[in-house]
């Protein structure tokens, strides 16, 4: 599976016209054919395609993702340096979206014709149809330009001493807007999904049984219904985790958040093939890990899956 991803990425990026020699030559304002050939030789680009591919796959399997053309640093090191801010952003956004979205959906499902339920429907529509970068700019206009209570960009104010409590708080402060813009879209999706799923479950026979047992509405909703209703939410969350990475590229770029998204975006502009391939490989790995986590979450929530796998 991972091997297929590596090979596919490699082939795909080889099809892109222009190579590192063109880029370097372009940046230094032109170079002779000899210099270009020399560069190509240094990076092994003069060798036949299948040899290049085999070399790359061999190296990746040993844990070496190659060296960035631009930074002249090992790609692995480069990615690991950028991964924490991205995970912080993506995981916070997704967790918030799932928790708040599900809560909204549950509240809306209990009174499907009340004001709050309509509010959730409208919120879902707006959140889902507004592009992330647009939401991000609107938030910047509101919080940074008009209210002036939020920092515009970056991970942290560089004057704050690293590692102190103030530093962590400052990171949170900087995190607020990116997370808000990134989670808006997903919040909308989860509230809608949870609402539909809850309404479905609340109409089922075992909910009637729970009520006939004399349980109160709160127990019925949060114990008997919610646990069944989150099963589709888990499915979608697992699928969307990979999707939210692409959203992160946009949000990180808008807020110059020093994460993988910014790195990916800039590396594409620079034609830094090893870095792009490294990031793609890394995100593929994350998707696989998340799928595994999704499966585990399923087993925790739904006993039917537990026994089906054990049998």
């Amino acid at each position: 599976m991972l091997l297929a991803v590596i090979i596919f990425n490699f082939i795909l990026l080889s099809l892109v016209p222009g190579d590192i020699a063109d880029t370097l030559a372009g940046e230094s304002g032109g170079a002779s054919q000899e210099v270009m050939d020399d560069i190509r030789r240094t990076y092994g680009l003069d060798r036949p395609f299948h040899i290049q591919l085999a070399t790359y796959v061999g190296k990746v399997l040993q844990g070496d993702l190659g060296t960035s053309y631009y930074f002249n640093l090992p790609v692995t090191e480069l990615i690991l340096g950028r991964v924490a801010p991205t995970l912080l952003l993506v995981v916070t956004a997704l967790v918030l979206a799932i928790l708040i979205g599900t809560l909204f959906g549950v509240i809306a499902s209990r009174k499907p014709n009340k004001l709050f339920s309509h509010f959730v429907t409208v919120l879902a529509l707006v959140g889902f149809s507004a592009p992330v970068f647009w939401t991000a700019f609107l938030l910047i206009v509101l919080f940074v330009a008009m209210l002036e209570i939020m920092p515009l960009s970056g991970l942290v104010d560089p004057t704050t001493p690293r590692g102190t409590l103030a530093w962590y708080l400052d990171v949170l402060h900087h995190l607020f807007l990116p997370v808000l813009s990134l989670s808006s879209i997903y919040l909308a999706a989860y509230s809608r999904l949870a609402r539909a799923s809850m309404m479905d479950v609340l109409g089922s026979d075992y909910i009637r049984t729970a009520r006939a047992k004399g349980l109160g509405e709160t127990t019925v909703t949060y114990k008997h219904a919610l646990r069944n209703a989150v099963i589709p939410v888990i499915t979608i969350a697992g699928l969307q985790f990979s999707h939210i990475f692409s959203g992160a590229v946009v949000v990180e770029t808008v807020f110059t958040w020093p994460g993988l998204g910014t790195l990916a975006f800039e590396s594409i502009l620079r034609g830094d093939t090893p870095t792009i391939m490294g990031i793609l490989f890394f995100s593929a790995m994350i998707v696989i890990i998340v799928n595994l986590l999704t499966d585990i979450a399923y087993r925790v929530v739904d006993p039917r899956i537990r026994s089906a796998r054990n049998a």
């Binding site: 026979d205 075992y206 009637r208 049984t209 006939a212 008997h224 006993p303 039917r304």
Partner: peptide, 11 residues
């Protein structure tokens, strides 16, 4: 109830 298959909570 009539439906023993669906009247118990599956989880």
């Amino acid at each position: 109830f009539q439906e023993p298959m669906t009247s118990l909570n599956p989880v």
